[in-house]
C-alpha cells in the first residue's frame, strides 16, 4: 500500500505544484505576521492554509476522473478484484499530503513565533488623524479591530502651557469602546490647544490568547477528511471532478456555517427568506462542525465548543463515504 501511495503522490503532485504549495506555506506564514491589526493571528494563518486542502481536493478529484477515463477501471478489475486498494491509496495520499504541508506550516510558524514573541508587549498600528476644532478623529484604515485594543497618542500644545504641571507634551491613552471597535473610528474631545501628532497616534493590540495553531490545523484536517471521501465517491460514481469537489466543499461549508446575523423577515424578499430558511434547515440536518473549521481574525474565532456527537457523526459520514468510494468506477 505504501508503494501505491508513493506512486500516487507523483500523480497528484507534479514538481511545479509541489513548489507552489511550499511557496504558499511560506507566504501564508509571512502574511499572517502582516502589518494589519488582527492579521497577526493564527486564525489568519489557518485561513490562508485552508487553501491547501481545497486545491489538493480539486487536483486529486481531477486525477481520479482522468483515471476513470483512461482504462483504470479495466486494470482495477483485472488486478484488484476486491477493488479497494486504489480508492484507498488515492484518499490516503491526499490526506497524507495535507497532513505533511500542515506540519511544515506548524514548524515554520513555531520558528517564526519564537523570533517575534518573547516580549509579550502589545503590537502597535498607525492611525489616520484628523480634527474639527477640539474633536479629534483617529481612524484605523482597515476592517474591524478587537474591542480589547487601546489607543495612544502624544499631545502637544502650540502655545506655552499656563502651568508647569501641564507640560509641553503629554501621553494620552484609553481603551476603545465596542462601537469604535466595529467602525474603527475613535473620536475624542481633547483639551483646548492640544495637537495630536500623527506619527505618535497608535492603536495598541495586546497579544491574544486563543487556540493553538496545532489545534486549529488538527480541526481543519478532520474537517476536510470526510469531504475528500465524499468528493472521491462522487467522482467514482461518474460526477465531473470540479462538480464533485465544489459539491463536497459546499456541504462542508454548510455544515461549518454558523448563522450569526439575525435578519428579520421584513428585511428579506420572499425568495431570500425561503433560501435562508432552506439553508438553515439543511444546516440543522448536518453535524455542527463549525469549530473544526475555525479561521479568521483571532478575536473573531469561533469560541463555541465542538460537540463530541457532532464530531462522531462527521467522522462517521466520512467513513461511510470512504467505504462506498471503495468501488470501481461506474461503467460508462
Amino acid at each position: 500500500m505504501m508503494a501505491l501511495i508513493q506512486a500516487t503522490v507523483r500523480e497528484i503532485l507534479s514538481p511545479w505544484s509541489a513548489i507552489l504549495f511550499l511557496f504558499w506555506v511560506f507566504l501564508s506564514g509571512h502574511l499572517s505576521f502582516g502589518p494589519l491589526p488582527g492579521a497577526e493571528s493564527l486564525g489568519s494563518l489557518a485561513a490562508f492554509l485552508s487553501l491547501i486542502p481545497i486545491v489538493l481536493l480539486f487536483q486529486a478529484c481531477r486525477m481520479v476522473e482522468h483515471r476513470g477515463r483512461e482504462a483504470w477501471r479495466f486494470e482495477e478489475e483485472l488486478r484488484d478484484p476486491r477493488g479497494f486498494r486504489m480508492p484507498f491509496a488515492e484518499w490516503a495520499t491526499t490526506a497524507f499530503l495535507v497532513a505533511l504541508l500542515f506540519l511544515l506550516a506548524m514548524l515554520l510558524h513555531n520558528k517564526e513565533a519564537e523570533k517575534r514573541r518573547g516580549t509579550g508587549k502589545p503590537v502597535s498600528y498607525p492611525l489616520f488623524v484628523s480634527h474639527q476644532d477640539d474633536t479629534w478623529e483617529l481612524q484605523h484604515l482597515g476592517a474591524a479591530i478587537p474591542n480589547t485594543a487601546t489607543v495612544s497618542a502624544l499631545l502637544t500644545w502650540e502655545t506655552a502651557p499656563k502651568t508647569d504641571a501641564e507640560g509641553f507634551a503629554k501621553t494620552w491613552e484609553r481603551a476603545i469602546t465596542s462601537e469604535e471597535a466595529l467602525t474603527g473610528i475613535i473620536r475624542e474631545k481633547l483639551p483646548q490647544g492640544a495637537v495630536v501628532h500623527p506619527e505618535f497616534a497608535r492603536l495598541l493590540i495586546s497579544p491574544q490568547s486563543g487556540p493553538s495553531l496545532a489545534r486549529l490545523l488538527f480541526g481543519q484536517f478532520f474537517f476536510f477528511l470526510p469531504l475528500l471521501s465524499l468528493a472521491f465517491l462522487l467522482v467514482r460514481r461518474g460526477v465531473r471532478a470540479e462538480l464533485a469537489a465544489i459539491g463536497s466543499l459546499s456541504l462542508g461549508g454548510l455544515a461549518a456555517w454558523q448563522p450569526t446575523v439575525v435578519l428579520s423577515r421584513e428585511q428579506l424578499s420572499g425568495f431570500e427568506a425561503a433560501l435562508v430558511q432552506t439553508l438553515q434547515w439543511a444546516n440543522g440536518l448536518l453535524p455542527d462542525v463549525g469549530p473544526l473549521f475555525a479561521v479568521g481574525r483571532h478575536y473573531l474565532l469561533s469560541t463555541t465548543q465542538l460537540q463530541i456527537q457532532s464530531m462522531i457523526a462527521w467522522i462517521f459520514l466520512g467513513l461511510l463515504a470512504c467505504v462506498l468510494s471503495s468501488h470501481r468506477f461506474r461503467k460508462r
Binding site: L4, T8, R10, R79, D80
Partner: peptide, 13 residues
C-alpha cells in the same frame, strides 16, 4: 511509474 502502480495494484511488493 504507471506500470509500477499497476504491478503494486496487482499485489506485488
Amino acid at each position: 511509474n504507471y506500470l509500477f502502480q499497476l504491478a503494486v495494484l496487482g499485489g506485488s511488493p
